[in-house]
Design a protein around this nucleic acid. Sequence first.
DNA 1: CAGTGAGCGAGCTTCCGCTTGACTT
Length: 704
Amino acid sequence: MPKSVAEKNKKQNTLLIVESPAKAKTIERYLGSGYSVAASIGHLIDLPKSRVAIDVDNNFEPEYITVRGKAKILKELTSKAAKAGNILLASDNDREGEAISYHLKVFLEKKNISSKIERIIFNEITPAAIKEAIGSPLEIDIGKVNAQKARRVLDRIVGYNISPLLWKKVKNGLSAGRVQSVALRLVCEREKEVEDFVSEEYWSLSADLKKGKHNFSVQLFLNKNEKPNFSDKKSVDLLINELAGKNFIVKEIKKSEKRSQPRPPYTTSKLQQDAANRLGYTSRKTMQIAQQLYEGINIGSGRVGLITYMRTDSTRISKQAIEDVRKFIQENYPNELPENPIDYSPSKQAQDAHEAIRPTYSHYTPDYVKEYLTKDQLKLYSIIWERFVSSQMKNAVTETTTVDIECGEALFRTNMTKVKEKGYQKVLKVLAIKEKTEKIPSLKTGDILELIEFKPEQHFTQGPPRYTDASIVKALEEKGIGRPSTYAPIISLLIDRHYVARKNRQLIPNLLGKIINEILINSFNNIFDVNFTAEMERKLDEVEESKENWYVMIGEFYAPFKKQLDHVMETLESIKGVMDEKTEYVCEKCGKTMMKKLGRFGYFLACSGFPECKTTKSIPLADCPKHGCGGKIVARKKQGGKGKEFYGCTNYPECDFISHLKPSSKICSECGYFMVEKYGKERGTYYSCSNNSCKNSKNTGEEE
DNA sequence: CAGTGAGCGAGCTTCCGCTTGACTT
C-alpha cells in the first residue's frame, strides 16, 4: 500500500516527552537527529479547582480536566505527536510521573493519534541511561497510576471538605489539608513547649590554670563523664572554698583517634537545611537559586546547566558522575582518592526518580564559575559542589587529647582536638567545620599546675528551639510528609495565610494558626496526625502492588470521615468574628469604633457598624516623617496584590515617602523619622532609621 | 545591594504534587 509507505517515511522521527523543559533540552542534545524532545511542564490533566469533582456514589471516580493554562502545551504536544512515528513518554519514574504519562496517553489516543505510544524510564540524565531506556520500552504501570489517583482523591476529599468547614465556623478563605495542617500542628506544638518551658538557673565551674608560660582552661566534671550542675552560686562557692589551696595534679592523659566520614551528596531536604543554617536562605530562596543553576548559566563558552535536578529525595549518583569526580580528585587531591567509589544508596523510602543534587561537571569548581554567578548563586553552588566532591574523598582523622586533672576530690578535664588527616575536608570552604579547641601546653602525668582563678559561671536551661525553615523541613521529611517539590511551598503557605509568622528565622504560630490547629486536632485528630500519612503511604503501596483497589481504600477512609465531618459541622460552635480586634480608631463616617480584621490582602480596619456602614481603611503604622505631610504610613502592595509588602504614605502621590521595612514604634533621636527593625546574624534584632540620609540608617539604633 | 507605588477588602475562598514563570532576594 503506497499510502502507508509514504506515511511511514514522513513519520519516522520519535517524539520523547519529559516533564522539565531544561531536561528536554539536555536530552535533545544527547539524542541528535531522528528525535525531538518536548516537555509537559508538570501535570496537564487534573481535577478542576472550583469544586470537589469526586463522584462519591460512583467509586469515587474523579472528574479530570485540562489544567488551567496548560491547554496550549497539550495542543502543541498533540500536534507534535501527530507528526511523530513513535512516541515515548518519559516523565519521571515515580507515581506522579506515571500519572502524567497515563493521562497523556489517554488524551492522545482520544485524539486518534495512531502512532505507537510507549513508556520509557530512566533515573538519570546521561546518554547511556537514556539510550538504554529507549531500547527497552515498557507499558504504563497502572498500579502506580492508581496509587497516585488514590493519593490525589484522598487529599482532595480532606482539603475540600474541611476547608469549607473552617469558612463556616471560623473565617472565610481558610484552608486545611493532610500536609499543611500537620506542619501547622508541629509549629503549634513546639510553641506550646516553648511557652510551658520554665528556665532554671544553674552554675558550672571552670578553672584557669598555668603551666610555665601557657594558660589554659579546664572544666569540672562529675563521675568522669558528666558536668555537674550547681543550682545556685552558694553551692559552687562552697566547692571553691573546699578546693582552696589544694594542688591541681595531672592524673591522666588520653589520646583517641576519630574518623569522620564525608556526608552523602544533597537531597532537596538536606540542601534546604544546609542553605538555611549556613547561608541564612529561606527554603524558597534556596529553591529559586537552585532552579537558576539547573536551568543554566552562561559561562563564557555558552549556557551550561551547573547542577542536576534540584527536587529529589535520593542520594544516588550516576556512574558517569562518579568517574568524573574521581578523575577530578585524582588530578587535584590524589592522596584523598579512595580505592573504590563510595556508595550512597538511597534510603528505603526514597522514590528515587532523580539523582542526588550534584554539580554536572566536577571540574567547574566554584572558583572557575565564580565570575559568571551572582553572589547568592555562587554560595549555593559552592555548597553543592563541596558536598558532592567531598562525598567521594577519604575520611578525615582527628586526634583528641583528653587531660584529667585532680584537685582534692574534684576532677577537672580539658580536651584538645587536632586534625591529623584532613581527607575530604580539604575541599570544604563554605562548608568548613569550624571547631573551637583549647590549646593545651605539653603535660605529663604528675605535673602540678598553678591556679590562676576559679571561674564559676551562671547559666539558664534553654527551652526547646522554635522551628526554622531548616528544622521544619527536616521534621516533615523524617515523617514522610510532603515531597521535595512541596517543602518550600508549605512554609510559604503557612506564612501567606497568616497562620505562622517568620521572625528572626523562627516560625511562630499566630493566634489564627493556634485557633485553627486547636479546632483541627479536636475534631480530626486522626487525620492531622503524623502517622496518618505513614499509614496512607503503606496503603498506597498495596494499591501500587495491586493488592488493593484504590477506590476500596478510599471508601474505607470516606465512610467514617463523612460521619465525623457531618458531626463536627453540626456540633461545633461558630467562632466567626472572634478574631476581630477592637481598636481605638473611630469610623470617619458614623463615629463607631473600627475593628481590626484579617482580609484576603492582610489586616485592615473596618467599621463595627458593618453591614450598615461599610467603611474600611488601612491600619496606620506610623506618622509620615516628611515634614508638614501629616499623612500616615500604611502597608501597601503592588498592583494585583502581588509581591512583597512595602510601607508608604496615605498622601501618595502627593507624598512619595516609602520604606520597604515595617515601621517600629521607635523614633530616631537624630532626625525624628521612624525606625525599622532589622536582623543581623551576629547582632540579632536591631533598629535602623528609615531615613536613608540619616547616619542612624547605617548604625545600630539606640535602645530606649 | 538598593529600589520598590496601590486606592482592593464583606465573597467565593480550599487540597497535594508535578512543572515554570514572574517577582523578590
